[in-house]
């Protein structure tokens, strides 16, 4: 009987434990460059928040890790994955912007310098705990033991050479107020991070403005990349992701402007149709509703002014 109940307990416990493995895969997408692609879903108890793309570059002077994921558990899985891919030591960890799915894995890399833009460090210091709390609510036990680790270093935009890679860091702001973009001149890979969402609707909680974001994407068009790894969604070798981003941003700006001009309420605006052109974009309805929450009050305010 004792054994039987033991087996039952074990059997009950197994599926739960199995479900809390991130099962990250690294795909080599260019020389020394590895892409860890997340799902184009919303945060859930099922996916554990693995909805973000991370990446790493194995240079001759050590590994550069680009974002650490959503939880301590994700960070640990990512570190294991990197260590099973290369013998190079960790050189530098980057947090590309303030959103929780990009820095809450920092604990797994606490022994390595972690760098971010000055404003991003400030934002993580200020909002990090609230973000982490929200993630616990959204994905539950996957977050166990996760604490905020504020990036220890400030990253200055510009070009640096590390271990045979010429890396150019750009500071933009369209997505979250301080958004890092990386262009690796050596491999031709452009890492726009969350400045570009592809086939997954963009998020707007901290955007300084849709058209500002749109304009900054023009700067990315000028970069002679051969491969782009978006912050969310699949990799792409041409300007398609930029086309989709700009078309969607333009539509958002226009639909919110028109709705405000017509005097629509927020709930009426949320129910407006989304053009079929955007049918391939995951989560478009849910993210459109969120965007109305974030931005419509300002559009409404603008039409009150005489």
């Amino acid at each position: 009987m004792k054994y039987l109940s033991g087996w039952i307990l074990l059997w009950l416990a197994l599926p739960v434990q199995a479900a809390l493995e991130y099962d990250l895969q690294a795909e080599q997408v260019a020389r020394n460059t590895w892409f860890v692609e997340g799902k184009t879903e919303d945060f859930s108890q099922e996916n554990g928040g693995n909805i973000v793309n991370t990446a790493f570059i194995v240079t001759a002077e050590g590994v550069i890790v680009l974002d650490t994921g959503v939880s301590k558990r994700y960070g640990e899985a990512l570190r294991q994955l990197i260590e099973s891919t290369t013998d190079q030591p960790m050189r530098l960890i980057i947090n590309t912007h303030q959103h929780p799915d990009h820095f809450l894995g920092n604990q797994a890399f606490a022994d390595v310098p972690i760098a971010a833009l000055e404003q991003t460090r400030e934002q993580i210091r200020r909002n990090g705990d609230a973000f982490a709390e929200n993630m616990y609510r959204l994905v539950g036990d996957w977050m166990r033991g996760t604490d905020v680790v504020v990036p220890s270093q400030t990253l200055t935009p510009g070009i640096i050479d590390i271990g045979g890679h010429r890396l150019e860091w750009l500071a933009l702001s369209g997505h979250s107020g301080a958004d890092l973009v990386l262009f690796d001149h050596t491999t031709g890979v452009l890492f726009p991070f969350d400045m570009v969402f592809y086939q997954r609707a963009l998020t707007t909680p901290h955007t300084p403005g849709l058209m500002q974001w749109h304009q900054e994407l023009e700067q990315l068009r000028a970069i002679p990349f051969t491969l782009m790894l978006p912050g969310h969604g699949p990799r792409v070798e041409d300007g398609r992701a930029l086309d989709q981003m700009q078309a969607y941003l333009e539509w958002l700006d226009r639909v919110l402007t028109d709705a405000a001009e017509q005097g629509l309420s927020m709930t009426e605006t949320m129910a407006l149709p989304i053009p079929a052109t955007f049918d391939s974009i995951a989560l478009r309805r849910a993210e459109f509703e969120r965007t109305v929450f974030h931005l419509y009050p300002d559009y409404e305010q603008a039409v009150f002014e005489p």
């Binding site: 709930t267 009426e268 949320m270 129910a271 509703e289 969120r290 929450f293 974030h294």
Partner: peptide, 8 residues
Amino acid sequence: DVPAFAED
């Protein structure tokens, strides 16, 4: 009419 989720 209410939104699917109270974002704010």
